[in-house]
Design a protein around this nucleic acid. Sequence first.
DNA 1: CCTCGCTGCAACAGTTTCTGTTACACCCTG
DNA 2: CAGGGTGTAACAGAAACTGTTGCAGCGAGG
Lengths: 142, 142
Amino acid sequence: MAANSRLTVATHALAWLALAHRRGHEVLTSEQVAASVKSNAVIIRRSLGDLRRAGLVEVRHGAGAGWRLARAPEEITLLQVHDAVDARPPFALHHSEPNLECPVGRGIRPALSGVYGRVEGAMRRELAGATVADVLRETLTS
Amino acid sequence: MAANSRLTVATHALAWLALAHRRGHEVLTSEQVAASVKSNAVIIRRSLGDLRRAGLVEVRHGAGAGWRLARAPEEITLLQVHDAVDARPPFALHHSEPNLECPVGRGIRPALSGVYGRVEGAMRRELAGATVADVLRETLTS
DNA sequence: CCTCGCTGCAACAGTTTCTGTTACACCCTG
DNA sequence: CAGGGTGTAACAGAAACTGTTGCAGCGAGG
């Protein structure tokens, strides 16, 4: 159960907010979003809270409270969503520092950091090329 | 401690095998590799076992046992290493199936799979562009 | 002003994954 | 055939994520 579904949950929530708004619902509550994702309302609030801190959604308190997008779905990329909810890199270096008396142990960390940085850059470029509007459009055609 | 350092450990082991071979050591034992990585010999045997099943290293049993590369370090890409030791994708879909009565819940999984597949493809292309020889060269220049 | 619905957040349990450790059977070179 | 090293299973500990409960706080509307 430990695999990262945060980007999935957050994107699902955003797409649902976008569709509901288009259908005339001003806001959705975390319960309503949780019903579509089939998850817990607290999980959804945690995720939407991250998105709020990143400026991607807005929240309304009091009676008639709920969430809505803070900007058009065409202007929210999955990279922004990823950075908002999950900042963990795909690869980690050594847990304990390698043996510095070995030439490989001494120099391998910067060498691997370079490779990992390029991999992460490629990943980010791909995520930046997809928006919530793209996902929603593809979602509705299937 | 749960972050994935498997690709790091395996690449470190391969680079060390390559350098030791160049220096005249026919094979290295898992203890010798563990001394450079500063990890446990069993961890190294697990990692090298994965690489052996992928055909990237060879093992010799009996007295004078140990490990060596099965091919030139220029012909081992980090993508092969990654596939040998760690087949887990960076993003997961929903843990429990979303609500199929919601239009978003119904269609979002294939939509996200498409995006995630493109991201993974970009990652794999980048990993395929770096070899153990590249990493070793960069390691020794720092 | 007060009520009520929803958010915000802390605390905790359960699951999974990964590293590390011990133990032991097995293999094969010398 | 002896001994060093591999192969593998079993288990402990740490970390991350999801899920759950509980409760304080906010504010729109009566």
